[in-house]
Design a binder for these strands. Structure first.
Length: 114
RNA sequence: CAACCAGAUCGGACAGCCGCGGACGCAGGCCGAAAGGCCGCGGAUGAGGAAAGUCCGGGCUCCACAGGGCAGGGAUAACGGGUAACGCCCGCCGGGGGAAACCCCAGGACAAGUGCAACAGAGAUAUACUACUGCAUUGCAGGAAAGGUGAAAAGACAGGCUCAUAGCCUGUCCGGCCCAUGGUAACAUGGGUUUUACGAUGUAAACUCUAUCCCGGAGCAACGCCGUGGAGGGACAACAGGCUGACCCGGCCGUCCCGAGGAGGCGGCUUGAUCCUAUGGGCAACCAUAGGGCUAGAUAGAUGGCUGUCAAGACAGAACCCGGCUUAUAGAUCUGGUUGUACC
RNA sequence: GGUACUGUAGCCAAGUGGUAAGGCCCCGGUCUGCAAAACCGUUAUUCGCCAGUUCAAAUCUGGCCAGUACCU
């Protein structure tokens, strides 16, 4: 990916949970500026959603949505996406639609992508 | 061919585009004094039979600890073997199931002691309600067969003597004990002994006893190393620097050193009671020898998305590592075997 | 990843082998002109599930399932 990396630090996750997020039936999205030129993206899949292989698959699909749509995002943000229970069985195009609409509400999409 | 039984192996495949992890290689690029770091390119490589539950047994690491015995605690339970060890595995004995192949069993001891046994029943470890027999006429003697209750009522049955269903005698069977033979052994077979004391209910997944084994605690989020800042301790010799102050002393900032240590980082981290093949030993589990192979090491945690064809069809994702057990699991293939039917 | 604990009526729960206490709620009745309160009565096919031991299991033993807490 061109300007993105994964978000790994636990205290940044906790800082983002305290911000106001955007949510729908599939996902919850938190975003915050990070004063760099790149994005850091974290994904949270809670233990209630299923066993280990189900959580792994859900996380991969959410990561893939970001990877395929990276050029639509603005750089310089920390982003955390939390999967909700409907995201486990959701088809891929619905997941993509949900992700992008939440990102648009949060104001982290490029103007040309809208 | 059908229905089964046992064991073993696999457990979506192929193609295209985009993408991920850690090694390796590169006369590649950038940073750096160097060590090295970051990026790029390349071709390989990259989850399981249960990776799961965390139920047992170990390795490994740290903390605690002079030696020995008793006590105490825990585990196991026919017998023999395998193993580093096990509560696991193999063989075998006994019992149970099946027509058979074959499968299942926590399978020591209640005549060492203690405890518990509701309801029903006359009586529950002991008894005499109904009923029975003899003599006498409602009393004496006999003793426990039958009825009934219950999970359980003094091993089971037959014949003779007898007033009798008591008691005694005889015989058969079950169990116990003793002897012989076979077996390493559990045990099997045969013979003997006896019947009120060799047989006086059940329960030890009740306390307990016996035999064998074990014995401190924690667990890789263990543990070791580095450690910006901040806080702590020490030093500041000479004119000296800044702040406080009219000035001096003093205090703070400052400079250097020290050892703990939070965030974070690095190691631990994968070659091991290892796997494959062959030969030999053993009924088998397994063992020995020889040759060959290296096959994930992440740390918000790597296998995904889309398309096409076939199939449509599971359970499910390593996190220090092994040996087992248990649980979940669609389907496919192979090997050996049993029974039934038909044909030659 | 690791270590503990809990599961009994809709809710809170007692019950250490022998008919599963009690309280709240719900429902029915008495009372009242109608309610409330009070009083009386009623509610467990599986005591989380499956096996086993026992004459007999909520209870004892083993294995699963679900939930909670702690270490971080």
């Amino acid at each position: 990916m061109k300007f993105s990396s994964s978000l790994k630090l636990n205290h940044i996750f906790r800082r983002l949970y305290h911000t106001t997020g955007q949510a729908d039936g599939y996902l919850v999205l938190y975003a915050r500026k990070n004063r760099t030129d790149s994005n850091r993206v974290g994904i949270t899949v809670g233990k209630k959603l299923g066993k280990a292989h189900i959580r792994n698959r859900t996380r991969r699909r959410i990561r893939e949505v970001y990877r395929l749509n990276e050029e639509k995002f603005l750089p310089g943000w920390d982003i955390v996406v939390v999967a909700r229970s409907r995201a486990v069985e959701a088809p891929f195009d619905k997941l993509t639609k949900s992700y992008l609409s939440l990102a648009k509400k949060a104001g982290i999409l490029q103007e040309s992508a809208e």
